[in-house]
Design a protein around this nucleic acid. Sequence first.
DNA 1: TCTGGGGTCCTAGGACCC
DNA 2: TCTGGGGTCCTAGGACCC
Length: 410
Amino acid sequence: MIVHIDCNNFFASCELATRPDLQGKPAVVANVTEAGGGIILALNNEAKAVGLKRGNPIFQVKNLLKAKQVTVFPVNHAKYEDFSRRIVHAVLKQDLLQDFVQYSIDEFFGELPIDDAAVLRDYILKVKDLIFATAGIPVSCGASSTYTLAKVATHYAKRYAGYGGICILPADKYEVALKKLSVSDVWGIGRKSSVKLLGTGIQSAWDFVSLSEGYVRKLFSLTGVRTWRELKGLPSIDLKSQPQQQSIMHSRTFAYMIPDLNGLKKEVSNFMAAACSKLRGQGSVCRCVSVFIATNPHRLDLQQYTNNLSYKLLSPTSDTLLLNKVAMGLLENIYKEGYLYKKAGVVLSELSDSSAVQLDLFQSAVHNPVRSRKLMGAIDAINEKFGMNMIHLSVQGNEAEPVEKKGFKS
DNA sequence: TCTGGGGTCCTAGGACCC
DNA sequence: TCTGGGGTCCTAGGACCC
């Protein structure tokens, strides 16, 4: 049986894990910006009960937040990654699940060779309790024969208090479970596909399963067929043999719009520093660098422009200096004067393990990989000890000079 | 006034090869 | 004027996920 573990209201639960004083009170996590923008990223059940929703722009619900005295936590990704890591370590250490896979920051899959529902439930309860004891995070669990059906089970575990957070879905219950499930709640069927299906009268997950494979193939291609098969109890998704991560991205929407190349250079080099630090942190190197910039798509009154450019290095590296030099060149190439930029980002791709770097025969003498590794190691160590960006490239700018303030209000 | 950030996979079509 | 058949690789765009 496949076991699915889903942390409840993860970001909000992380914030509240250390705030017992806020028990029973509404709280949300939002990526608030200095310009007053931002959206709600996560909410506890109390915040949901007052009518707030994930994705609500803060400015639209400002009054509601105030009226209901909702606590707003600024998003803190480092904290959530830390909680996530602790959960993974705890579960792996106790070895309660086989083939444990981390699917996202707050979702995990594992397997148990147990058919008996009562025994299975006991086992899963141990995992659930362990996670709560370790991290203070409540989770919901589902178990069934495939990943997709296990997610269906979790869906019910979350919605019906009677399950106590654990729902086991055996083969003789597929039909009733899928008949009660809207097709739009199926993992793998998003908004576009739901509209398509509802248009042809397909409403429940069971309706979807009842379609022919050929029809599903034609409408939704291979991914749709996989979902369709999984709902029938035929394992068709493989999460275990996922190779290493394929890309690292760092991007931001700016509080203010930036008109000039130098302003963008400062932002992009900061993104690059963060991306490289993450790259080295996981012991990887990258061979491909991309940079993208975009204007504000919500400002229909302004000229729109978005572009991206990639560069493939001769040999992979994790050197911030080298990668940033490339990024600055890419940025200069795609930058066009006369636009107000609202968002930019960098992507590092074609990742590989840093221990097996293929050296470039024509490597320039200027860039010495051994020296680079020592320098980057020293930078990471200092930034780790004294705070992020204690050491940085001069183009990244100085926090004491709020350059972005010179930008245009969005 | 104000609308996130970080990922994956698949497909169609074009460029190119023999 | 007419213009094959069989491949690979790359890219952009779309859809999905959390």
